[in-house]
Nucleic acid binder design. Structure first.
Lengths: 224, 224
DNA sequence: ACTGGAGATGACGCGGTTGTCATCCTGCGG
DNA sequence: CCGCAGGATGACAACCGCGTCATCTCCAGT
């Protein structure tokens, strides 16, 4: 992970750089906005730490210029300006976080990590659903129970996905029919019952406790 | 944009809710972690504002439980605990921002907006592939050509996905057989040819120019 | 133009998937 | 204890996806 520090105060800049390097980050540092702009445009940085009071340009302007040129990395603003108005302004102008001086290094590190964690989206996060020891991988269309893969058909997967998305909440047959089968409410069919049965045969067969529960007179729940 | 507020202090909760609603957000609020967990699992919220001191569960535990269950929405922690250690802990345990009480509403709004600005566009990025006017949604398993939906079977989708991932590069039958069918190199079959043919019938039938091209003696390319 | 070989295409049948139905089971109220 | 409604289950038939094969088409090199 590579960071860019833009800070004119030499003491703070070097102190910051050392702390970040010790934490395992690659760090470029600059005291001038113009120089920082060139560095940032290389697009190699994963996050920026920017002071607002710079000798050749206001930090906010730097941020806006970078954003306008397609630099998407998250920016943590580090400023001596403490007022609420200044903070709001900084956040509105493209900053992703705002810290005031003096600051605690530990907190700055934590905030930088939080920014990186979110901006480098672990794609498995949005594409995976978990309930108890059951795991669905929406991209690979794979289901696992306690690590063991479960072979599911299209419809079975769709139904299980719907149950997972509503884990803990009771879903009625009508809801399932609507979302999974895209049918209007139809009491003359029992597809849902049948598929629940087939799912149980695969999901709750070889494992305890059963995850798919029946709520009599209402519908079903997936619950740990 | 829909938010979830988890805060046990009634005054703060209602004050916050009102301020957020006035700013144009949809707001659900809860005083209990257990209830908040159920609400959050619906997956309809774009961001969460969580107090750490809750009557039935620690806010950090709530956040960890939600993360473990696949809730990816950003979390702003709102807490009376002011120490650096507490802040660091909150950010490390899955919080994306941390504010201490008392707080300025304007700043909170700005921080929530900053979180939403960054976390919203990321979703669809990893789950979509595009080549020319052809679009694959890996989650929904839908394919579109110039906006029109194309009905594909499992294998067809898998093959097209593989072609998309290697768009512009020539892929050999052996590569396709290996990645899509997980078969060892086998010259005695022409499944690939057949499926390419079926794909063409659906993808290149009603649109110009053809995207699937044959490279004689080598394999196929998907190219704009 | 001829020909060999690579790719395209259409037909076919096996097997898995899916929805329906009839029947059996079970929890709950009387 | 009984009866009923709601749910579970097993059998079945229609359908569809998939791989194979035989045949046809087209391109490249002579």
């Amino acid at each position: 992970m590579r960071l860019l520090v833009v800070e004119d105060d030499k003491t703070i800049r070097e102190f910051l750089t050392r702390a970040l390097v010790e934490s395992g980050f690659g760090v470029d540092a600059s005291a001038l906005a113009s120089q920082a702009e060139k560095l940032a445009l290389e697009g190699v940085h994963d996050a920026l730490i920017v002071d607002l009071t710079l000798p050749d340009m206001d930090g906010l302007e730097l941020i806006q210029r970078l954003r306008a040129q397609g630099v998407g990395a998250p920016v943590l603003i580090l400023s001596a300006r403490r007022s609420v108005d200044e903070r709001v302004l900084g956040l509105e102008r493209g900053g992703d976080d705002y810290m005031t001086k003096p600051f605690a290094v530990a907190e700055l590190l934590a905030r930088v990590r939080a920014l990186l964690r979110r901006s480098t989206p672990n794609q498995s996060e949005a594409t995976r659903l978990r309930v108890g020891d059951l795991e669905l991988d929406l991209i690979r269309r794979e289901a696992r129970r306690g690590g063991a893969e479960i072979q599911l058909t299209q419809q079975e997967f769709a139904l299980l996905e719907y149950l997972c998305r509503n884990a803990g909440r009771v879903v009625t047959r009508a809801m399932v029919l609507d979302h999974v089968w895209k049918m209007r409410i139809d009491t003359s069919t029992n597809i849902v019952d049948v598929h629940i049965h087939r799912l149980r045969g695969k999901v709750d067969k070889d494992a305890q406790p059963p995850l798919i529960r029946t709520i009599r007179g209402v519908g079903y729940v997936l619950k740990d």
